[in-house]
């Protein structure tokens, strides 16, 4: 077991039409966790709760082993957060915004900031409000990487970002992870990001964590099987995600080995099987 950077225990937040949690989540040092879920599933709300921008109703949030509410400043200095919060300061130039943010981080690295600004071709004289959606995302990303943070909380950092910059962002995140014992929680709809960056995947639906697993488990266990028929035992089997009795008769499972054994025992023939891509897995998880 590694050192835990984030411990969420029984976290709960109620709104008029939405409830997040109760939720438990643990992120260990050196891990990149992908947060996946449909729009409105609670990803941004979770980030805001972690940053104490929203107040929890119940539960506990420990960042670096410390209570966030009681050690807010110390904890926030070690977190790089990109969560679409800069728009109200759209009247400022990127340079002015950087000055406003840098002041509060003792570990602000001006060289790193300048390097990233150059790398992403950002005009620091431009007003933030006038920037394109992709540029805004890049600027937030740069801010989150410009101080010596141990944990990055990134809310859809590549949404609306051009392909070249997306590739650069992935490189920078990999570099971030190589530089020390750090962690990232990244909310994303992009299967490539999950494939290339994440170790663990957490799936949110209607404010609840419905699945949490290691990425390799997905490749190992998730499969679509073409079968001669679907036996009754599989209809409510916990490892069957979806099945279709219409031709072609198919079973989608998150534990192929187990289901294959069940099918064999029921003398059901498997014409062929196919491992699922990450994108397909997300579709099944979010839709079902």
């Amino acid at each position: 077991m590694g050192i835990s950077l984030l411990d969420v225990i029984g976290l709960e937040k109620k709104f008029q039409n939405f409830q997040l949690g109760p939720m438990d989540l643990k992120v260990e040092q050196g891990m990149v966790v992908g947060l996946v879920g449909a729009n409105g599933s609670g990803k941004s709300t979770l980030f805001k709760l972690l940053m104490n921008i929203l107040r929890k109703d119940n539960g506990q949030i420990l960042l670096f082993g410390k209570n966030v509410e009681k050690n807010e400043i110390e904890v926030k200095q070690k977190v790089g957060f990109a969560g679409d919060l800069l728009d109200p300061y759209g009247h400022l130039t990127i340079e002015e915004l950087a000055g406003m943010i840098a002041y509060w981080y003792p570990t602000w690295n001006k060289e790193q900031f300048n390097h990233l600004i150059k790398k992403y071709n950002i005009n620091t004289e431009e007003k933030f409000g006038k920037c394109s959606k992709g540029t805004k995302k890049k600027v937030e990303f740069i801010f989150s990487l410009s101080h010596d943070s141990a944990l990055l909380l990134l809310d859809e950092p590549t949404a609306g970002v051009d392909i070249v910059s997306q590739r650069k962002m992935k490189e920078d995140l990999i570099l971030f992870m190589e530089e020390g014992e750090r962690s990232i929680i990244i909310a994303t709809h992009n299967a490539d990001e999950i494939n290339q960056l994440c170790d663990d995947i957490v799936v949110l639906q209607a404010g609840k964590i419905i699945y949490s697993f290691n990425k390799d488990e997905v490749y190992e266990n998730w499969a679509k099987l073409w079968v001669s028929r679907v036996p009754d035992e599989l209809a409510n089997h916990p490892n069957v995600i979806l099945f279709s009795t219409n031709t072609p008769v198919q079973v989608v499972t998150n534990n192929a080995h187990k289901i294959e054994r069940v099918l064999q025992s029921k003398q059901v023939s498997i014409s062929h099987s196919q491992r699922l891509t990450m994108e397909e897995v997300f579709e099944y998880l979010i839709e079902t």
Partner: peptide, 11 residues
């Protein structure tokens, strides 16, 4: 919204 941004900083 301005305050939300400021609250996200270590202030």
């Amino acid at each position: 919204k301005r305050m939300a941004f400021l609250r996200s900083l270590p202030i």
